[in-house]
Amino acid sequence: MDFKKKMKINMIYYAALVVLGAAFIVLRILGYMPDIFISFGCAYAACGLAMLIKNGVIISNPEKLKKLEIESKDERNRMIYGKAVSLAFNIFIYAAAAAIMALEFAGMSEAGLTVALCLCGFVLIYVVCYYILRARS
């Protein structure tokens, strides 16, 4: 797909994110949602708006658009991105395991169990992704 077209489609998603964020804020103010949704709303709206402005500026500047296209399609950048995600996941697994033990020692078994269940979920997602990617390649 043409990179410019892809960026325009992304702008629709970011606009939807801004609308969703604004909806969360309004619904919280009207009292239909718990307090946490005002944080979600602000985060969604701010991120969506920032990305909308960024994409708008890049699309209007062909030189910047070409530079971003090369950077996003560059094979070394993609390899670094993949390695960084993989490393972050590995560190997360060890950090979560340490957190489970720490919470258990601190007498917060329920919190430890929650973290352990999240960790199991992540590992399960990893296994599913691994087999899907292995079957495709």
Partner: peptide, 14 residues
């Protein structure tokens, strides 16, 4: 060279 190959200059250097 990087421009002609559609890669970043850092990739060419690496």
């Amino acid at each position: 060279l990087a421009g002609a190959l559609s890669v970043t200059r850092q990739t060419v250097i690496a």
